[in-house]
Amino acid sequence: VTVDIKGMEYHFDNPEEAKKFAERMAKELGGELKVENGTLKVE
């Protein structure tokens, strides 16, 4: 699973970990979490 945090890509084997990480980063950065082509994106 790929997580894109404002252009920086992180790769996770575990989808649950990827989702938790993306949600935490969205909250910390005040960004919006989206799913695009199987990639979790925070913008």
Rank of each mutant, 00 (worst) to 15 (best):
V1E: 02
V1C: 14
V1W: 15
V1N: 06
T2H: 06
T2M: 10
T2F: 09
T2L: 10
V3A: 02
V3L: 05
V3I: 05
D4H: 15
D4V: 15
D4W: 15
D4C: 15
I5K: 01
I5M: 03
I5Q: 01
K6Q: 13
K6Y: 15
K6P: 02
K6H: 14
K6R: 13
G7D: 02
M8P: 00
M8E: 09
M8N: 08
E9V: 15
Y10W: 08
Y10G: 00
Y10E: 00
Y10M: 03
Y10K: 01
H11D: 02
H11I: 10
H11A: 05
H11Q: 07
H11W: 13
H11T: 10
F12H: 01
F12C: 09
F12R: 00
F12P: 00
F12S: 00
F12W: 01
F12I: 01
F12D: 00
D13M: 09
D13K: 10
D13W: 08
D13G: 08
D13R: 10
D13S: 12
D13Q: 10
N14I: 04
N14H: 06
N14D: 13
P15L: 14
P15V: 13
P15H: 12
P15C: 13
P15M: 15
P15E: 12
E16T: 09
E16Q: 09
E16F: 10
E16Y: 10
E16P: 01
E17I: 05
E17A: 09
E17R: 04
A18L: 02
A18T: 00
A18Y: 03
K19W: 15
K19I: 14
K19R: 14
K19D: 02
K20A: 14
K20P: 00
K20H: 08
K20S: 11
F21G: 00
F21K: 00
F21P: 00
F21Y: 05
F21Q: 00
F21N: 00
A22N: 01
E23P: 00
E23N: 04
R24P: 00
R24E: 11
R24T: 10
R24G: 06
M25K: 07
M25A: 07
A26V: 09
A26Q: 06
A26K: 04
A26H: 04
K27E: 10
K27T: 09
K27W: 13
K27M: 13
E28K: 11
E28F: 11
L29E: 03
L29M: 09
L29W: 06
G31T: 07
G31F: 12
G31R: 04
L33E: 03
L33A: 05
L33N: 03
L33Q: 04
L33H: 04
L33R: 02
L33K: 02
L33V: 15
L33G: 03
K34H: 10
K34P: 03
K34W: 10
K34E: 05
K34I: 13
V35A: 08
V35H: 08
V35D: 08
E36L: 12
E36I: 14
E36V: 14
E36K: 07
N37A: 07
N37I: 05
N37V: 05
N37T: 06
G38N: 09
G38S: 06
G38C: 11
G38V: 03
G38E: 05
G38D: 06
T39G: 07
T39H: 11
T39A: 09
T39C: 11
T39P: 04
T39W: 09
T39S: 09
T39M: 13
L40V: 07
L40Q: 04
L40H: 04
K41I: 12
V42I: 12
V42Y: 03
E43A: 11
E43W: 14
E43P: 05
E43N: 11
